[in-house]
Structure formats: structure tokens, C-alpha cells
């Protein structure tokens, strides 16, 4: 696997939050920094003291057993939930008090564990929603069909097709999003997220329900996204082949707490991680 080569350039760095930022990104402001992030639901600490720093072009993985709080972390970063403690910084800007849409404007984009496409819209329209804040015109230009409407609609159309082309989906532009096969829907969600021009892309179980062939394609796409768009990616995934193959840094969550951080090899050999996945006193590979 070509992705393996990234591992050599990755190492633990002594940044304050004890995270794993690749060397090439160390001199940049981290795209994501969470400090002691936590949320309680009626006394239950779903996520507690979550610290993570992601470099500008890093691919990081967030893994953990079911119910560990991985998606909750995503919901905290994207402001679906307001954290009860700690802070999230995107490119050094605190997200405190911002809404989901405002967080998106700062450069966070995500996909969902259960696909959330606009099923009744076409593929192109889905991508155009992603372009909402990138290629704009006001309501009156739209109603009165002023020149600005035609210019910007054309730009949206071209940009949407360009993005779809990168993922080999331009021939599907007029299909209804809800009628696409599962794997293609997942890919469309990624394209739609990329259309928002993010700095950090959060992928929530992108390989769920995919066959091995599709997963391999996804791995190539993830690396391609990072190289072509020069953005950071944080992904939640249960498919360990994908996580170990593509992620430079991995963070393991269990019962809402980080139990390990490191490179793929470090994580695979970490006894705490093995215990979390397989239980005590058992030999095995995670």
C-alpha cells in the first residue's frame, strides 16, 4: 500500500496536548486543536478531557469500541453539541458560541455515519449546496434573474462538475441522490463536504457498508483528497485496514476518554488498546 510511506515521516512531537503532528506541519498553526473538550449528558460524561491536535495536512484516525464517544467528538467539533467543558480551536480560532453553520464557514466539513444527503435533489444540486457559501449571489438577483444570477449559477455548475469529475462522478450529475448505490452516496457526501472548501474534513465511518474493493478505492481517495486539496482529515472508522493504512496519527477513545495516541504501529502494539478491544488477558491483534 502506497499510504504506508507516510509512516516514516510521522513521529510523536512534544506539543502541549501530547499529539501526533507530522513534521511537515509542525511549523504551521494546527488546523484543529481541542483542549480538555468534554460534554455531559445529565451527569454522564460522554466525552471527557479530549485533547487532540491535527496538523495542516495530516490524516488522523479516531478509533475505539462502540459507544466510546467518537461521533460525539465529531458533534462537539462541528458544534452540533455545545461542549460543557474545554475549547475547540480551528486554525487558532475558538469556536465557543458559534453555531453549526458558522463553524462550517471557518473551514470544518463533515460526512455522517448515517448518510445525510438531500435525497430528492440531484447529485449536482447536492454539491451546489456545498458551494453555498463559496459561490454566492443574493435572493433578489435570483428572483429577478439579474446577470449576477447567470454568472454565478454557471460558476456553481462548472465547479460542481469539476469536483464530481475528480471522483469520477460527473456522469451522475443529474441522477437523484437518493437513487444512488450506497458506496456512491458515501462518495457524494465527501464531494459535497469538499465543496464547502474546508480546511478540516471529518469523515464518520466512511467505509461502513462498503465491500473490500470500494474500501480500497476509498483509501486512495482519502490520500488523493489530502494531496490535491492540501487539507487535514480526521476519520472515525472500524475498518482497521483502512485506519492503519491511511492514518498518520491515531487516537483511541474508550468510555469517552483518550486511552492512547500514536502511529499505527504504536497503537497496534499498545496493551491498553488491545485490552479495550479484546478484553483482559487475551492475546491478539487489534
Amino acid at each position: 500500500m502506497s499510504q504506508q510511506k507516510h509512516h516514516s515521516s510521522t513521529k510523536m512531537v512534544p506539543v502541549p496536548t501530547n499529539s501526533i503532528v507530522p513534521e511537515r506541519d509542525i511549523n504551521d498553526i494546527p488546523v484543529l486543536e481541542t483542549r480538555h473538550l468534554g460534554i455531559e449528558f445529565g451527569g454522564l460524561k460522554a466525552v471527557d478531557d479530549f485533547n487532540l491536535t491535527i496538523g495542516r495536512t495530516e490524516i488522523a484516525g479516531l478509533i475505539g469500541p462502540n459507544g466510546a464517544g467518537k461521533t460525539t467528538v465529531f458533534n462537539l467539533i462541528t458544534k452540533v453539541y455545545e461542549p460543557t467543558s474545554g475549547a475547540t480551536l480551528i486554525n487558532g480560532r475558538d469556536l465557543h458560541g458559534l453555531g453549526i453553520a458558522q463553524a462550517s464557514k471557518l473551514g470544518i466539513a463533515r460526512t455522517f455515519q448515517n448518510i445525510r444527503l438531500f435525497d430528492n435533489m440531484t447529485v449536482e444540486e447536492n454539491v451546489r449546496i456545498g458551494l453555498h457559501n463559496n459561490i454566492k449571489y443574493d435572493m433578489f438577483s435570483g428572483i429577478l434573474r439579474l446577470p449576477r444570477y447567470w454568472i454565478q449559477e454557471n460558476r456553481q455548475h462548472e465547479k460542481a462538475l469539476e469536483l464530481l469529475h475528480i471522483f469520477g462522478m460527473e456522469n451522475l450529475a443529474d441522477e437523484r441522490a437518493g437513487s444512488l448505490p450506497y458506496g456512491v452516496q458515501r462518495r457524494l457526501e465527501i464531494v459535497r463536504a469538499l465543496a464547502t472548501n474546508p480546511k478540516l474534513l471529518l469523515l464518520d465511518e466512511p467505509a461502513a457498508g462498503m465491500n473490500p474493493h470500494e474500501t480500497e478505492e476509498l483509501m486512495e481517495n482519502i490520500a488523493k483528497i489530502r494531496d490535491q486539496f492540501q487539507i487535514a482529515i480526521l476519520l472515525i472508522e472500524h475498518d482497521m485496514n483502512l485506519v492503519m493504512g491511511v492514518c498518520e496519527g491515531i487516537c483511541v477513545l474508550n468510555f469517552g476518554r483518550v486511552i492512547a495516541k500514536g502511529t499505527a504501529t504504536e497503537i497496534q502494539q499498545n496493551p491498553v488498546v488491545i485490552e479495550a478491544y479484546l478484553g483482559k488477558k487475551k492475546e491478539g491483534q487489534a
Binding site: 453549526i100 463533515r110 455522517f112 445525510r116 435533489m121 451546489r128 449546496i129 456545498g130 453555498h132 435572493m139
Partner: peptide, 20 residues
């Protein structure tokens, strides 16, 4: 138009629309 698509997006899936 752009606004109309946004309105429909909010109807179809509020969280997804906000995330965009």
C-alpha cells in the same frame, strides 16, 4: 436559485444543511 436550494436543503435535512 441558490436561496431556493438552501431552503429545500433545510427542509430535507436540517443538520446536513447547517453542516454545509
Amino acid at each position: 436559485s441558490r436561496a431556493g436550494r438552501a431552503i429545500k436543503a433545510c427542509r430535507d435535512n436540517r443538520i446536513a444543511a447547517e453542516s454545509m
